[in-house]
C-alpha cells in the first residue's frame, strides 16, 4: 500500500475532514436521519426542552421551536443549505478569483492595473453589506445566495492569489518554459497553476467556512432561502424571540455553525501547514 500523502497525515486535516464528512452525511441522508419533518408544526408541543432536561420529549431529542418544529430535524436539514452554499459558492468564487488573479499576475501592465482597481472598489464595501445589497437586488432563494457570495468573495481569491502569481511569474522556470516555446495558456496551466494550487486549495477551505457564516447571517436577517427551507441562521432568528424560555434553541444552531466553520478552518490550517503555502497577512480577511 502506498503511504499516505503528507497532508493527509496532519491531525488538523484529519479533524477537518472528519467534521466535514459528518456534516456531509447529515446533509445527504437528512430525510433518513431526521426524526421528524423539519417543517411539521406541532402546535401542541411548542418550545419543549431537549430530551435530557425536565419535560423533554423523546420524539424531539433537541426540543421544539416556537412553532413546535423539531430542532434536531431542522439542524440536520439546515446542513443541506449550509454545505450547498459552502461548496458551490467557494467553487464559484475560486474560479472567478483565480482566473483574474492569474491573468493579472501573469500579464501585468494595464490588465493588472484594471483588475487591481476593480478589486479595490469591491473591497471598499464591507462584505456583509455588499451581500445584503446584492440580495435585495437579486431576491431571495438558494441560487441567489450562492451568486451573491460568489460576487462578493471572488476578490478574496483574486487578491491573495495575484501576489502569489507575481512571485511565481518571476521564477526562472517560467522564463525557461517560454524559451522552449510554451504558449501563455500552457505556461500558466503547467508552470504557474501547480504552484498556486496549494494556496488555492487552502483558500477554498477557508472560504467554505466564510460562506457558511455569510449564509447564516443572510438567513438570520431573512434575506437568504425562503422560510420553507430550514437554515441555521433562521433558527437563530426564531430562537432569539424566546431567548428566556428556550435558550437551547439558540445554542443548538450556534454550535452547528461553529462546528462547521471550525471544520473548514482547521482543514484549511492543516493544508496551509502541510502544503507549505505562505498565507500570512491576508489569511482570513
Amino acid at each position: 500500500m502506498r503511504p499516505l500523502p503528507l497532508w493527509l497525515k496532519s491531525g488538523r486535516v484529519q479533524t477537518g475532514l472528519v467534521i466535514i464528512f459528518i456534516l456531509a452525511v447529515c446533509a445527504i441522508f437528512a430525510p433518513y436521519l431526521a426524526p421528524n419533518d423539519p417543517n411539521e408544526q406541532n402546535l401542541l408541543s411548542i418550545l419543549t426542552p431537549p430530551i435530557w432536561a425536565d419535560g423533554g420529549d423523546a420524539m424531539f431529542p433537541l426540543g421544539t421551536d416556537s412553532l413546535g418544529r423539531c430542532v434536531l430535524s431542522r439542524l440536520i436539514f439546515g446542513a443541506r443549505v449550509a454545505l450547498t452554499v459552502a461548496f458551490s459558492a467557494s467553487i464559484g468564487a475560486m474560479i472567478i478569483g483565480a482566473f483574474f488573479a492569474h491573468v493579472a499576475g501573469y500579464f501585468g501592465g494595464w490588465v493588472d492595473w484594471l483588475i487591481g482597481r476593480v478589486v479595490e472598489i469591491w473591497l471598499s464595501f464591507p462584505p456583509v453589506i455588499l451581500s445584503l445589497i446584492l440580495m435585495v437586488g437579486l431576491g431571495t432563494g438558494l441560487r441567489n445566495v450562492v451568486l451573491a457570495i460568489v460576487l462578493v468573495d471572488w476578490t478574496r481569491f483574486c487578491r491573495v492569489l495575484r501576489s502569489e502569481v507575481i512571485v511565481l511569474r518571476r521564477r526562472d522556470y517560467v522564463s525557461a518554459a517560454q524559451l522552449v516555446g510554451f504558449s501563455h495558456w500552457r505556461t500558466i496551466t503547467r508552470e504557474i497553476l501547480p504552484g498556486t494550487l496549494p494556496l488555492l486549495i487552502t483558500l477554498m477551505s477557508l472560504e467554505m467556512g466564510v460562506a457558511i457564516i455569510v449564509e447564516a447571517i443572510l438567513s438570520f436577517v431573512g434575506m437568504s432561502v425562503g422560510s420553507e427551507t430550514a437554515a441555521w441562521g433562521q433558527m437563530i432568528a426564531d430562537a432569539r424571540q424566546n431567548i428566556y424560555d428556550a435558550p437551547f434553541n439558540l445554542i443548538a444552531p450556534i454550535f452547528a455553525i461553529f462546528f462547521a466553520v471550525f471544520g473548514f478552518n482547521i482543514l484549511g490550517d492543516g493544508l496551509r501547514r502541510t502544503l507549505d503555502t505562505r498565507l500570512t497577512q491576508t489569511e482570513r480577511t
Binding site: 525557461a176 518554459a177 522552449v180 516555446g181 510554451f182 504558449s183 500552457r186 503547467r190
Partner: peptide
C-alpha cells in the same frame, strides 16, 4: 520540457 511545447 521542450517536447511539450506546441508543434513538438
Amino acid at each position: 520540457q521542450a517536447n511539450e511545447a506546441s508543434g513538438l
